[in-house]
Design a binder for these strands. Structure first.
Length: 795
DNA sequence: CACTATGTAAACACAG
DNA sequence: GCTGTGTTTACATAGT
């Protein structure tokens, strides 16, 4: 390449001076105090947020930061009043919630565990109501010193204990028809216990609290009750299952009896799943309406969902079936046996409690059959254990399988989804494990199949399911958006239409093969958490789920996948609200930000603002990504710093940007061929039109860009492998060419293609200004076309 | 396996 | 001295 020494642009003089100065300094040897070869860098192998987890101080507490985005979403879902869609307030709300969420996670489980432990002491007696009161009193004494969350937690514990006690009485037959006095006397304390440890009557509480507050409080407490009681069931079933196993080993008859119950087991599992779905659906509804507001220390089950879930008679019968009393033939008496009784009654109580007649509803639902076959419990246990032991694809998403739902599933592999960065990633556990062996030991010891682990697993299940619900919701939104934006109706699944040809090719191909649900990739590795994206947009698949895996994933999307313009146009709100990393490189984002500006130039601070405005992800760890932005601005020649009156602004050198990506589609003919074949588009023009429409969506935000559409259309026929020709076309399209002929541009482009210092020094005056300022729009659209429809490059 | 692109971290210089 | 901006280097990682 020949080197042309042209007038050095004034705007570059400063930059050149700086570089020359630095180079001069370097030529003179490293300045004193310069970094060592390892240069005080962070430990190796720590990138992309993972560094921050261990070394980065600005990233916050050591709380599993890699899971922080997920936790944030989960926390927002668990506390739906903290809506994800509240743009701009997401972080202020969610981030403080993360710690409380984690704490809640532990508290909830510990509470359940503690209750499980404490209940057996009362299993044989009804007289512990006073102890409940005492406990409540002692807790109440500490109210002035504990936080509201703790207070609420204590209240819940009291309520649970009181409920258990009461229900235990029922189960043990003490609450006979003739013992209405006992019932009444218990019912009121129960209500009081649920309301307040100070034993304030419901009437008093109603005076103190507004009806919505009362309702919310009751809902919260009852939701937690349900959650905990369900844990009791699981605990009980687990134990019973173990007993069954023991019996099976001892008696072949036991095994035969179990085998006879296969069909009922399946039906039972389906019922449970149905119940959960009902709960989640209701949660989603409430979430949409912004009605649910759980305190951080609360469980994740709104009482509405509890009502909805429990009201169906079959579900109540289900619980009855599940939570039978221990039969006399049980060889071992575990506390869970009694818990089952309590749980079943308590659940019934909760169901009745959910009725408007709070605390006045007769507890008629609590009369449960006391002879549930242990086989049902075994079924329940198996259902539960299916989440923890085997890869129950029917029940769990790949993501949940890859996260915490299958702690023992991955033990044979070198990596474990619950292990990373030397610490256990079990929810609520941050135990440090030096190696996999230690971690496995820790996992087996600390997270064995017990009530606590089961409870945690269940919480995680709910988290996953909430995420799935959220995904469905967002998919619906995307569908509506795309429909509104006049996506081609011929598309079978508009919302699932990939936003780029590359991904669409692969998706369509996969869809036609073995992934009808639109999974971008089969979950090849459980270590890579991938949520099944039944209707998920490509953005979610590529960014929110693959993103956390590492930064490199984004390169795919950036390089030959999603055009940033259309992607952002279609998922703008998503990125604004969801804490997911956009599937674009910093360079792409910076360029887009600059080109989105009215005058194609932005100051660094404006770029920062654009990032934070457009992406919720970039509202945290500002030091990290801002550094990356600056790094990219300085590193890539496509970003040109221009001295302005009031400072410096950054512009985009489109030619350089194009040149920056030589591999692109051109370098991957196979990919392009797959794209073409996979798309099966008979008419490229139609594709171009559609793509143009997509690209125009965001770009048309700037009125001045509209008139460049024609230019971009013309450029569709430009060979993209020749950057200079592209620029020629752009300029010849009447854009504000500063009087340079296409040949001149070609020369200049050749000059820029010389990545040498000489080239830098001889950077042409007109290039950056003309290209980036006047032709950026056309080039932008053309590039988007190129990204989406690179087929002509092959010709 | 080498190369490339990218992300991250860090050090440093400089200006305000 | 602090902060923001800009540059550069080093390293890790994933893709090619």
């Amino acid at each position: 390449m020949e080197k042309h020494c042209i007038v050095v642009p004034v705007c570059l003089q400063l930059r050149l001076r700086q570089r020359q100065r630095l180079r001069q300094r370097q030529s003179q040897g490293p300045p004193p105090g310069v970094r060592s070869p390892q240069g005080g860098r962070g430990p190796p192998g720590m990138t992309w947020g993972r560094c921050g987890q261990q070394t980065e101080s600005s990233a916050g507490p050591p709380l599993a930061e890699d899971t922080e985005p997920l936790l944030a979403i989960c926390a927002a879902m668990l506390a739906p009043h903290m809506s994800l869609s509240s743009a701009g307030q997401y972080y202020p709300i969610v981030c403080p919630l993360l710690s409380t969420y984690r704490r809640c996670h532990v508290m909830m489980v510990e509470s359940a565990t503690e209750n499980i432990r404490t209940t057996p002491s009362n299993q044989n007696g009804v007289s512990s109501l006073s102890s409940q009161s005492d406990s409540g009193g002692s807790n109440g004494d500490a109210n002035g010193e504990i936080s509201p969350v703790d207070l609420l937690h204590l209240q819940q514990q009291q309520a649970l204990q009181a409920a258990r006690q009461f229900l235990l009485q029922q189960a043990t037959g003490l609450s006979s028809p003739g013992s209405n006095e006992v019932k009444q006397s218990l019912q009121v304390p129960l209500s009081m216990a649920m309301m307040t440890p100070q034993m304030i009557t419901p009437q008093q509480m109603q005076q103190i609290l507004s009806p919505p507050q009362l309702q919310a409080l009751l809902q919260q407490q009852q939701a937690l009750m349900l959650q905990q009681l369900q844990e009791y069931y699981k605990k009980q079933q687990e134990q019973l299952h173990l007993q069954l196993l023991t019996q099976q080993q001892q008696q072949q008859a036991g095994k035969q009896a179990k085998e006879q119950l296969g069909s009922k087991q399946l039906a039972f599992q389906q019922q449970l799943i149905q119940m959960q779905q009902l709960q989640q659906q209701h949660i989603l509804n409430l979430q949409r309406q912004g009605l649910v507001g759980l305190q951080p220390g609360q469980g994740a089950v709104p009482i509405q969902s509890l009502q909805q879930a429990m009201c169906p008679p079959e579900l109540q019968q289900l619980w009855k079936d599940v939570a039978g009393v221990p039969s006399a033939e049980e060889p071992v008496k575990h506390e869970g046996l009694d818990l089952s009784t309590n749980s079943s009654n308590s659940t019934s109580y909760s169901a009745s409690k959910a009725s408007p007649q709070i605390s006045h509803h007769p507890l008629t639902n609590g009369q449960n059959p006391l002879h549930t076959p242990k086989r049902d419990r075994a079924r329940l246990f198996e259902w539960i254990s299916s989440f923890t032991k085997e890869s129950s694809d029917e029940h769990l998403t790949p993501y949940s399988k890859g996260s915490s739902a299958h702690p023992q599933h991955e033990e044979h592999s070198g990596t474990h989804p619950l292990y990373g960065h030397g610490e256990c990633k079990w929810p609520g556990c941050e135990a440090l494990c030096e190696d996999m062996g230690q971690f496995l030991k820790h996992l087996n010891n600390e997270h064995a199949l017990d009530d606590r682990s089961t409870a945690q697993c269940r919480v995680q299940m709910q988290v996953v399911q909430q995420l799935e619900i959220q995904l469905a919701k967002e998919s619906e939104r995307l569908q509506a958006m795309m429909t509104h934006l006049h996506m081609r109706p011929s598309e079978p699944k508009p919302f699932n239409q990939p936003l780029n040809l590359a991904s669409s090719a692969s998706l369509l191909k996969r869809d036609s093969e073995a992934y009808p649900e639109g999974l971008p990739h089969p979950p090849t590795s459980a270590a890579a958490p991938i949520t099944p994206l039944r209707q998920g947009p490509s953005v979610i698949s590529s960014s929110s789920l693959h993103g956390p895996v590492g930064p490199i994933r984004r390169r795919n999307s950036d390089k030959y996948c999603t055009p940033i313009a259309s992607e952002l146009a279609q998922n703008c709100e998503f990125y604004k609200n969801a804490d997911v990393r956009p599937p674009f490189t910093y360079a792409s984002l910076i360029r887009h930000a600059i080109l989105e500006a009215p005058d194609r130039q932005l100051t660094l601070n404006e770029i920062y603002n654009w990032f934070t405005r457009m992406f919720a992800y970039f509202r945290r760890n500002t030091a990290t990504w801002k550094n990356a932005v600056r790094h990219n601005l300085s590193l890539h020649k496509c970003f040109v710093r221009v001295e302005n009156v009031k400072g410096a602004v950054w512009t985009v050198d489109e030619v350089e940007y194009q040149k920056r990506r030589p591999p692109k589609m051109t370098g991957s003919p196979t990919l392009v061929k797959n794209m073409i074949s996979g798309l099966g588009f008979g008419s490229l023009n139609a594709s171009y039109q559609a793509a143009l429409a997509e690209s125009s969506l965001s770009l048309l935000n700037s009125p001045s860009l509209v008139n460049s559409t024609g230019g971009s259309l013309n450029m569709l026929h430009v060979g993209h492998d020749d950057v200079s020709s592209t620029v020629e076309q752009v300029n010849s399209n009447g854009s504000c060419s500063p009087g340079l002929s296409p040949q001149q541009y070609g020369h200049q482009i050749h000059v820029k293609e010389e990545p040498t210092e000489m080239e830098e020094d001889c950077r042409p005056v007109s290039l950056m200004a003309s290209v980036s300022h006047n032709l950026s729009m056309a080039a932008d659209m053309e590039r988007d076309m190129e990204e989406e429809l690179p087929t002509e490059e092959l010709e």
